[in-house]
Design a binder for these strands. Structure first.
Length: 458
RNA sequence: GGCGGCAUAGCCAAGUGGUAAGGCAGAGGACUGCAAAUCCUUUAUCCCCAGUUCAAAUCUGGGUGCCGCCUCCA
């Protein structure tokens, strides 16, 4: 069955044909580790994870590369000033390396909580300074770059006629300096830094043929993607915000260097909005997984929330929405666990349908609806079917249910209530149930006896 | 000013020509000592206007609203 993917380059769905049969290489634009990852960032990586799982479902051997940007993001253009790493480091009184280490670990932890498969290769920008310098040298030699004394090495976009082919922007239409002053020594306002000269006080700096400095932002992705995936690669993903600048620049410098088309399929994830608008710290709606957990929302409920919408449409995060996702996940899980282990194979037509959905540019919401159907109207082999589905959905439906311990005191109250019920002393039984509820124990009397759920009050 | 995206029930959302998937919430029912949980049933003509077509949420044109990018940002 053909796998169709929406390619930003052509603005249409295209049949996926890898460079090498049976194998797929994907490069995922990773995080800049200067702060906690928020749920908007995480939506992007959930999308990348789904893509990877769908590729694997189709039998491809996937090489999944993700970078960690631990240097070089400028706070402002203007070619002055600190990068984000340095700024945060100063704020938190840590070295940039400590900072990167800390937030990288936090990010990896979030990935794990969301059941995101670990990339085949996770590469840090600071481990590839030499390669980035070589890349820059190559561009200088080919005449695609020039030096501004005291500033750095810049890519000359006017030498790359196809600049703008990904975003649809034309160089001449870009409103130069709309929000920020342009260095007049740049040949074109859209020219971007490959390498920046570092003032002596700049913490992160490396020796280079042009003196001490540090890499520009865009160069790392091109360099590392080429190092690990070759001069031409199958798939490159990122957030939609990266299309006009970051990815445009990556294309320019990469294709300028190799003279070949670089990425065959560009895939971009839409934004997560919060309450219909942008998420920002100033609006106090900047959420992380920890924020969700404080409100008793599991990380996997956020994954479910994202699965419910197509990756190319904006998704609106609301507390009502995430609560619905939490509830849905619990029910789906329960439905799965209630299915009999009948040892039957998954029904082929059902698998076929699912496969068709995910191969249609990752129509995971539809695939999820099929999962519900399997739970609500089970056919023989439903469990096996859901196991197959979950290889893509990644909701850990088959995770063992953890048996929680009830603190002795609460266990005693529960026992007392059971005795009261046996004695048909409903008033006492109900009073005890209320008491237990106050202390975080939800009691349910089923045919098989009384069961409980324990969520200690915060 | 330029470029791109979105607009479907109370909420989150699938669906690109043939009379609207799924989830949550709500309503009704079953079950229960009562509840909870669970199960069953049930809830929309698709932002507006004009057009193409036997037929449009789905195509075309024009509006309106929201989001993003043109500084760093998933």
């Amino acid at each position: 069955m053909d796998l169709m993917l929406y390619n930003t380059l052509s603005r249409s769905k295209e049949k996926f044909i890898p460079l090498e049969p049976g194998k797929a290489g994907m490069y995922v634009c990773g995080p800049t580790v200067y702060d906690y990852a928020h749920i908007g960032n995480l939506r992007s990586y959930i999308f990348a994870d789904l893509l990877r799982r769908v590729l694997e479902y189709n039998g491809y051997e996937v090489t999944h590369v993700m970078n960690i940007t631990d240097v070089g993001h400028l706070v402002s253009d203007a070619d002055e000033g600190e990068d984000k790493m340095a700024e945060s480091a100063r704020r938190e009184k840590k070295t940039p390396w400590e900072l990167a280490e800390f937030y990288t670990r936090d990010f990896m932890n979030s990935m794990e909580l969301l059941n995101l498969k670990k990339p085949t290769i996770v590469c840090k920008a600071t481990d590839h300074i030499r390669e980035m310098i070589e890349f820059t040298q190559g561009l200088l030699e080919k005449g695609y770059a020039y030096r501004i004394e005291g500033q750095g090495i810049y890519f000359d976009v006017s030498k790359f006629p196809e600049y703008g082919k990904l975003s649809g922007n034309r160089l001449e239409d870009l409103q130069a300096g709309a929000r920020v002053a342009v260095d007049e020594r740049k040949r074109h306002p859209a020219d971007f830094a490959l390498w920046k000269d570092a003032p002596p006080e700049h913490i992160m700096q490396w020796p280079s043929p042009w003196g001490p400095g540090y890499p520009g932002w865009h160069i790392e992705c091109s360099t590392m993607a080429m190092k690990y995936l070759g001069k031409q690669i199958d798939i490159h993903t990122g957030g939609i915000d990266h299309i006009p600048i970051h990815h445009e620049n990556e294309i320019a410098q990469s294709e300028a260097l190799t003279g070949k088309p670089w990425v065959r399929y560009w895939l971009h994830g839409e934004f997560l909005q919060v309450d219909g608008g942008k998420m920002s710290k100033s609006l106090n709606n900047f959420y992380t997984l920890a924020t969700l957990q404080e409100r008793n929302i599991e990380p996997l409920a956020f994954r479910y929330f994202c699965l419910n919408a197509h990756y190319r449409t904006p998704l609106n995060f609301t507390w009502d929405g995430i609560a619905a996702a939490q509830k849905s996940l619990e029910r789906l899980r329960q439905g799965y666990n209630n299915l009999p282990d009948d040892g039957q194979p998954a029904p082929p037509q059902m698998l076929e349908r699912f496969h068709r959905a995910i191969n249609d540019d990752l129509n995971v919401p539809l695939a999820l609806a099929y999962a519900w159907e399997a739970v609500r109207s089970p056919s023989p082999g439903a469990k096996a079917l859901l196991d197959r589905f979950d290889a893509v959905l990644g909701l850990n439906l088959n995770a063992p249910q953890v048996a929680k311990e009830l603190p002795p005191e609460l266990a005693r109250l529960l026992e007392e209530r059971n005795q009261a019920r046996a004695a048909r002393n409903w008033a006492k039984a109900d009073a005890l149930r209320d008491e237990l509820a106050r202390r975080g124990v939800t009691v349910k009397d089923t045919k098989e006896g009384t069961v409980w759920e324990y969520n200690p009050p915060a």
